[in-house]
Every structure is written in structure tokens, then in C-alpha cells.
Write a protein that binds this DNA or RNA. Structure first.
Lengths: 256, 256
DNA sequence: ATCATGCTCCATAGATCTATAGAATAGTCG
DNA sequence: CGACTATTCTATAGATCTATGGAGCATGAT
């Protein structure tokens, strides 16, 4: 009964359209960036170190596979991930790489994720301690990514400015830093820097995509940053907008 | 502060090793098969319509990316998926394809998934109704896949034998059929066939991999099949071995 | 030992992909 | 409208991937 073998082959060929996107390291990097926030072609080329035309070419490949969508704003074209499934797919790929490829683990270790990551803070712990006002939640990603979506009540302090703006942080509170996800090095580096300065700091186990996929609230916009907003408001936001601290068990959403 | 850009590039290059596996339709097909059960190279070549050497070559690529592992039994080599994360990754890819690629949906519809799939049975409904003895759970995948793992209490009746062995099914009970997953056509075809014979039949929303990933129990071995085992035992097994109908969120560790 | 079986390794022609320069297009601002 | 800017399209050389036949290697049987 092979009447549909042709159709079945078509099916896998369609899947391969998606696979085609993630054969190239730079395309994975682009996709990863786009899971954090939308960006212009120029910004993407800059961030990945690609020539503009090359970046555009890669983006076309991704667009043909429907993994990204575009929005035009004046003279600029902004690309974004074409939905939550895209981020989930990239996340699954990262999980797979971390668990199966020893090399990945090794690279992460060699960059200090290990040292800083030995004791990551769980979601639940973060929620509990933030509610109690015991910690400052720090988003160390670039500012654009923060404003595209962040943990409610988190403060934006991009890693590149952390050293210079260290005095904005209350030395008595422990810092919980987060970034793009398990493969991102921003938070671990931030934690290493903070510890080097004698602060108490740990990484969150999630990046923003994981937090979002867990069904937890995400806040958009510039937020309450500026250094003058007090800690109380910060923690208040995290508590106030939190619907439930337990996993909502949406049929998917790898709880980790 | 680009001191780690080289390392970061390395990281994405590692991810691309995984991407490399899923560029080729046949490799995706192979991976999909291996998420159901281990198989020999010969069996895989046969199932995918590849020449033996070509299949072996593809399997080597997959092995280098650590997505599959092997076991030697006498003169034969059996390949298997290298862990649950692999299946999750393939699953995420399938979800992505279904939601983003209209073509996939179209292919599925053109093959009758639509007709048979308009009303899929949810996990919870299945558990409830099976417990009440109202339905027969049918595994319509090939027998090897059934014995490598199936829903407790399900009966094996491969699609290819369904028509011939139709009389083994009690005409008064509704059938709930399942197969490999949302992209698999076995269950929808089985349901179409059953309905054509005047039976009541629906597809389960899950395939075995989804069921397993949800943390629900999976039974191995030939099971209680044979046509002589009564319905009561079948349903009893599903109930008895079910620890909890809710997602237990065990983060890992389903030994196969 | 010798042979058969089941797979992997090797070599290679043909197909496909990547980076990039330069041209073309779309939208903006005087 | 015409100059200008941000992107996309086009063409192409160089690099990489795929399918496949046949040799080479273990394992098991005679």
C-alpha cells in the first residue's frame, strides 16, 4: 500500500526546508537573536559580523522557510521570529546540543558558565525570594532586548555597562541575573564580574525565552529602569503580575 | 569586549552539527523512525527506500552529530535515537512545520488526516473513557514499534493488517487509534478505514513519542495481544499502570 | 580455516550552497 | 521630482554535500 509514499516524501521535504535554515551556524545565531527581539537587517549584520548582503541572503533563506517575518518601518526592514514555535524549536536544538554534544558543554565551561552556573536559581526560588524582597533581578541583555520583553520587575543593566554602573546596585541584596538562555554567556559573565567585586550573585536557570514558554508573565517597554526607582517597586511588579507560581502545564513547554 | 566571539562562533558551529542532520529529508525520516524503535541498517534502508550504502552514509552523519547510537547484535548493527531530547527536537521540528508551513497542513489534509482528525481524542479523555471500558485503544504502527513501546493496554493491529483482522474488534466499542505522531498518517488512515466499515473510530491527539514525553507510562514487549485476551484486561492495564493523569513533569529519564 | 552476511569506508561525478560585488528597487526627505 | 538610504536581487567562483559502486572488515556458520 504505497499509494502515498510520494506524499510522505513531500512531507519530509517540507521539514527539510526548516532543517535547511539551521545548517548554517550564522543562521542559527540570527534565529537566536530574533527570538529575543526584532531587529533591522543592519543590526543583525552588525551583531553577527556578517556583511550586509550576506546577512540579507541568510534572512531570505529563513524567510522562505517561514521561520521569520518582516515589518517595514520607513526605510528599514525589521525581522522577527515567526512565532513561539520557532523559539521552542531553537530551544529544543540548544537542549539537544547541551545534552548530547560534550563539546558544547566544554565550551560553556571554558567560558565560566560552569563557575557561575554551578548553582542556578530556579524559577520558583526566584519568585519566592523576589516576592520577599531578598533579591534584585537583573536583565543583562542589550537594552533593545530588554524593552522587547523582560521579566516583570527586572532591571535592565546590559553586561557592557555593568562595571561602570555597579554603584546602582544595592550591595546588600543578592543579584539574580538572566540573559538569553542556557547557551548565552551574558548572565554567567555578569555573575562572575559581580562576584569578583564581592557581591552575591547567581544566574537564573532560565533565559527570557524559557520564562516566556513556561507561561510566566513578560513585561514590555522600557520598564521602571533609571536607577531612581526603589527596590520595593521592582519586587512589587514581579509579584503583582504573577498569576501562579506553579507550572501551568500547558501541553508543551519543557519545564526546566 | 569581543574576547569570546571566537568561542561563541564555535558554539553555533556545534549547533550546526545538529542542523546538518536535518537538512536532508531522508535523514529526518530516519530519525523519525528511530524515535519509534531501534532498527538495523537494512531495515532502515528498506523502510526509507534508500540503497544500503546510502542509508549507512546518512546514519554515519547522524552518528557524528551524536543523534543516534548503535548496538551490535551478531552480524547486525542496530541504530537508535540517542535519547529523549532527540525525539523532542524532532517533535519540535514537526510542530513548527505544521504551524508555520501551510504546505504541510495541506499535504496532511489531502491525505485524509483532516477528515479523520477533525475530532481527535485528548489524553485525558482517553484515560477516562478507557478506564470506563468504553473504548479500545489501537496501536496501528508496525509490530516492531509496538513491542518497542506502546500505551499500556493498547492492542497492536498494524494498519496493513487492519482490514484482514477487522473481526477481532468488538463492533460495539469505539476505537481510538494512535500512531507515530501528528505527522504520521497511519492512525488517520486506520480511522478512515474503520469508519468506512461502519465502526466508530477516532484518532488520539498524541503519537507514542508525545505520550511518552508527557510522562505517561509506556509498556514494552509483545503485550497481551493475540485476539484471545479479553477487553477487560486491556482496559485494566491502562488504568492500573497509570500513576497520575496529570503531567508529572519528570524532567528526564525514560529508559528505553 | 573458509565462506556468507551485514555494514562501513573510499573515491568520484554531479548537484547544491556560500560569500560577495555590483545592479536594481522601495521608501524618505528636501 | 531627484538625491539618498536601506535592502534585495543577480551572477559567479569556490566550497561542500549526495548517491553509489566496489573494496575492506568484523561476526557467525560450516
Amino acid at each position: 500500500m504505497e499509494h502515498d509514499s510520494g506524499r510522505r516524501a513531500d512531507l519530509y521535504e517540507q521539514l527539510a526546508r526548516i532543517g535547511k535554515v539551521v545548517v548554517h551556524p550564522k543562521r542559527i545565531e540570527l534565529l537566536d537573536l530574533l527570538c529575543q527581539a526584532e531587529r533591522s537587517v543592519e543590526a543583525l549584520a552588525e551583531a553577527t559580523g556578517l556583511k550586509l548582503t550576506t546577512a540579507s541572503a541568510h534572512l531570505q533563506v529563513m524567510r522562505q522557510a517561514r521561520l521569520v517575518e518582516t515589518r517595514r518601518d520607513g526605510t528599514r526592514v525589521f525581522y522577527r521570529a515567526a512565532g513561539e514555535e520557532v523559539c521552542r524549536f531553537v530551544g529544543a536544538m540548544g537542549d539537544l546540543a547541551r545534552t548530547r554534544l560534550a563539546e558544547v558543554d566544554q565550551i560553556l565551561r571554558s567560558l565560566g558558565t560552569d563557575a557561575a552556573g554551578t548553582e542556578r536559581v530556579s524559577r520558583d526560588e526566584l519568585l519566592a525570594r523576589a516576592r520577599a524582597g531578598e533579591v534584585v533581578v537583573l536583565d543583562v541583555r542589550p537594552a533593545e532586548e530588554y524593552s522587547a520583553g523582560h521579566i516583570p520587575g527586572a532591571r535592565s543593566l546590559p553586561l557592557e555597562h555593568l562595571e561602570a554602573r555597579l554603584d546602582e546596585l544595592d550591595p546588600d541584596l543578592e543579584v539574580v541575573a538572566y540573559c538569553r538562555g542556557p547557551l548565552c554567556l551574558l548572565a554567567p559573565e555578569a555573575v562572575a564580574l559581580l562576584r569578583g567585586r564581592g557581591r552575591r550573585a547567581r544566574c537564573l536557570e532560565d533565559g527570557l525565552p524559557e520564562w516566556r514558554q513556561a507561561g510566566l508573565p513578560v513585561e514590555e517597554g522600557i520598564g521602571t529602569d533609571g536607577g531612581s526607582s526603589d527596590g520595593a517597586e521592582t519586587h512589587g511588579a514581579l509579584v503583582a503580575t504573577t498569576p501562579s507560581p506553579t507550572n501551568p502545564s500547558t501541553h508543551e513547554g519543557t519545564p526546566r
